[in-house]
Every structure is written in structure tokens, then in C-alpha cells.
Amino acid sequence: MSRHIQDRIGRRLSTVFPCPDAVEDTSRLGQVLLRLAQALAPAPAGNPVPDSFRTDLLAAVPQLRRYALAQCRNAAEADDLVQTTLMRAWENRSRFEPGTRLIAWLFTILRNAFLNQRKRLRREVEDVDGAFAATLSLEPEQERRVELIQLQAALNTLTAEHRETLLLVMVDGLLYEEAARVLGCRTGTVKSRVSRARERLALALGTD
């Protein structure tokens, strides 16, 4: 598949799964972010917080919210999941490996929190059933509108595993190796899932 087609699919996916709006300061997540920002302020010499960790953690919130929303399909639950992720990341900041990308580590924390939550509630994750359709920011051009609808329909036919893997790589920009660590599978598995999902979406967009 050509780079042009891959980029086109990536742009369309970003439209279907946009980063949520800014967090309201008065919301529970907003209050957590305010407290986190204070905690991340320059720390005493005896307990320094690397500048990169401080900056990247707060900058990752929009991506974390998008990923959480794609997992649980509910804005309130997604923000609670992000809140849990940020708190665990802060509590376990000493475990973060310098030189690796923070976003991949955060996605791992978020995904594990979601899976644990699902086990506790003993419920299965429902497949995408068009729930995102109502939130799509459709462009005025009819051609683009039809294309987005076709893409949404194609996403609905993907398995949860293929869809999640595709979004991590093509929307959030994780490397295959990073996505593999998040998902707890082999790098080859990630490559296979992305390839198959991308081919299905390319067909939906009428590309070859």
C-alpha cells in the first residue's frame, strides 16, 4: 500500500476519532489536572521530576482521553479512566524508563486499568456500533461526508483487537514495538493486524 493511501487513511481516522475538547477546570478530571500541575512544578532537589516527564505527562492528556473514549464509549467513564492513569503514572513515576516514549507507557497503564475495570464489572467490551457516528465532525463537502460514513462502516466490521491496534499505530503514532508492549503481544502480530485493518479501510475508501 502506498504512503499516500496510508496518509489518507490516517487523516480520515483522525477525523473519526478526534481528540476530545479541552477539560473544564471545574470537572473532576480538571481538578486532578490542576493538582497534578502543582505536583509537577519544580520539585525539591531531593526528589526531582525530569522536565521531559513533567511536560510530556500533561501534553498526553488529549491522546489519553481519545484512547479511553475509544475503549469505553462513555465520556464520563473515559475521563475517570484518564484520571486513574495519571494518578498511577505519578505514583509510579520512578518506574518510567528514561529514553522510552512516555505516551506508550501511559497507554499501557490506561489499557491495564480498563481491563481490570472490565473484569471487576464482569462485562464485555461492546464493539463499535456507530456510537461515534453522532459525534463525527463531518465536513460540509458531500464527498467527504460519504467517505467518512463508509470509513465508519468499515471500522464497524473490524474486530476490537484490529481496531485498537490500528488506532494506536495510525492515529496515535506509536511504533510497532511500542504498540506491541501496550497490547502485550508480538511486534509481528501488531504489523499483521494493522496491515489487514488498513487493507479493509482502503477498500472502503475506494483506494487500491
Rank of each mutant, 00 (worst) to 15 (best):
S2W: 00
Q6A: 12
R8Q: 06
R8K: 07
L13S: 02
S14E: 09
T15W: 01
T15I: 10
P20A: 01
D21G: 15
T26A: 13
L29V: 08
L29N: 08
A39M: 11
A43P: 08
G46A: 12
N47K: 11
D56E: 15
A59Y: 06
A59D: 13
A59I: 03
L64N: 07
L64R: 00
A68Q: 05
R73M: 08
N74G: 02
A75I: 07
A78W: 07
V82T: 12
T84I: 09
L86V: 09
E91F: 04
N92I: 00
S94F: 03
P98Q: 10
T100C: 07
L106G: 05
F107G: 00
F107T: 00
N112M: 05
N112C: 05
A113C: 14
A113S: 15
K119T: 08
R120E: 15
L121F: 12
V125Q: 15
D127Q: 14
D127E: 13
L136G: 00
E139N: 10
R145T: 10
V146W: 09
E147L: 15
Q150K: 14
Q152Y: 06
A154W: 01
N156V: 04
N156F: 01
L158D: 10
L168M: 13
V169W: 02
L183A: 06
C185G: 03
R186Y: 05
T187L: 07
T189V: 07
V190L: 05
V190D: 03
R193E: 04
V194R: 09
A204H: 06
L205W: 09
L205E: 10
L205G: 12
T207F: 13
